[in-house]
Design a protein around this nucleic acid. Structure first.
Ligand SMILES: NC(=O)c1ccc[n+]([C@@H]2O[C@H](COP(=O)([O-])OP(=O)(O)OC[C@H]3O[C@@H](n4cnc5c(N)ncnc54)[C@H](O)[C@@H]3O)[C@@H](O)[C@H]2O)c1
Ligand SMILES: NC(=O)c1ccc[n+]([C@@H]2O[C@H](COP(=O)([O-])OP(=O)(O)OC[C@H]3O[C@@H](n4cnc5c(N)ncnc54)[C@H](O)[C@@H]3O)[C@@H](O)[C@H]2O)c1
Lengths: 210, 210
DNA sequence: TGTGTGTTGTGACTTCTTTCACAAAAAGGT
DNA sequence: ACCTTTTTGTGAAAGAAGTCACAACACACA
């Protein structure tokens, strides 16, 4: 029942890929089909599904409905996850557009920016608020997670405020170190690193095939 | 000398963190300082640096200048990496803004969008072009890498064109499977997965401390 | 009923990654 | 000159992740 970080990531992807196409009550999927979608192996998919106790049928595969539901019981907080976004620049706008209209366990409960010109503006349906309000909103909404999309300068300071206000997980887009207490989880999303990795790996495909 | 994917990612981060602050010819950094910045361990940092043959000094640490340079010889293609961006929506704009003005081994050589209304528009200094031109630009510029920032629908089709035109690495933001030949490297960047992972991990911190 | 085919579930194995732990090196003080 | 402190470099151990291989099962069709 204990799923590792890697498994959690893949389960999230399986679910999204399955949810994208409509399926009926009696649709099944094979481990090798999921594997192909994520460029993995069938054995790995079966291990992942084993980790959350999902069981399939020989010769038919896994029933999609229960599979999606079971992934949900692992990934989704039954009380919902409430998220604040800090930094309503280009990237913040993209994230808001992306989150908009997803009926899911993840809800944006506030978008914040330090720029007074941004306060009050509505971005993709979310009203941008002043940073002064952020502690209040986090407390009132009991937000557990923050998306940090400010420039690197000042990211640590914003981070400290978020943690102090009760946030326990941060998705960090800023290319800054972010020092946090142990109880807080930081997930770095780094486009520059992704590009550099790809650029590096496509040279020398022979060695380091990973 | 063979660096794994994980090591490459961390080296990229070390370099960026070091490059952010100015340093003089004789500045040194300790493995534990780098470790703190990436929430890792000193031993791991030393292993990473060992992988690229960088050597430090007892009691003084690693000389920053040569370290940054040596990371560069691993990560950077000496001929430069030329990148095309497909999908000049919110996310594409954010990426263009992010890439703009970085004097680095990574260069955006074209931005493309299927929306005729977008063609000709200039985004963060990059002129958005019609999809008709993409094969020509990839060939003329010898672009090796693409950033895919279109909706999931049609992502596979765009991907096929990119691969056919000669692209060998793709950073994929679209929540779509992307089936590619073995010789092409796809790096998925997935905000939804990052959020779900954080949301999942901050519950149950006791178990699965990874 | 029996045979053939294709898939799951999983123990065992392999490979990759991280951590541990300590000798050796360098610097500073006395 | 010697001792103390701090840090590197790395072999060895531990741990995590991924792969293999195959028994067990389910279905199809004769
Ligand atoms: N755009 C990308 O693809 C990309 C990729 C990786 C990382 N990033 C990073 O994400 C961050 C945001 O990128 P962007 O393109 O949206 O930049 P941006 O300049 O368009 O937006 C930044 C926003 O943050 C606000 N801000 C600045 N300081 C703040 C503070 N202390 N508190 C609250 N809000 C503050 C600004 O007012 C602005 O609206 C940057 O750190 C960037 O390096 C961006
Ligand atoms: N915004 C985010 O934070 C985020 C996060 C994860 C994934 N994504 C994904 O990134 C993609 C882009 O997001 P966005 O917010 O920029 O969306 P968007 O709708 O703002 O932009 C998409 C752009 O792609 C263009 N486009 C559509 N089909 C195309 C095609 N076949 N060829 C070329 N261009 C095409 C559209 O004209 C539009 O300009 C989406 O797949 C989204 O799911 C976004």
């Amino acid at each position: 029942m204990a799923a590792s970080g890697k498994t959690i990531e893949r389960l999230s992807v399986y679910r999204r890929l399955l949810s994208m196409r409509t399926f009926s009550e009696e649709d099944y999927v094979y481990s090798h089909e999921l594997a192909r979608m994520v460029s993995g192996t069938a054995a790995q998919v079966r291990r992942d599904l084993m980790a959350i106790g999902v069981t399939g049928h020989s010769k038919r595969g896994y029933r999609i409905g229960p599979l999606v539901e079971e992934i949900g019981t692992l990934l989704d907080d039954p009380e919902g996850t409430r998220i604040v976004l800090v930094g309503a620049g280009d990237l913040g706008r993209a994230v808001l557009g992306f989150m908009k209209g997803r009926s899911s366990a993840l809800t944006i409960v506030g978008a914040f920016d330090s720029d007074p010109a941004k306060a009050g503006r509505v971005v993709h349906g979310y009203r941008c608020r002043s940073m002064d309000e952020i502690e209040g909103v986090i407390a009132a909404e009991r937000a557990q997670v923050a998306i940090l999309a400010t420039p690197a300068d000042g990211a640590q300071e914003v981070c400290d405020r978020l943690v102090e206000a009760g946030v326990r997980g941060i998705v960090n887009f800023a290319p800054a170190p972010l020092i946090v207490p142990e109880a807080v989880w930081v997930e770095r999303v780094d486009i520059a690193t992704a590009l550099e990795k790809v650029a590096c790996l496509i040279r020398g495909v022979d060695e380091t095939t990973m």
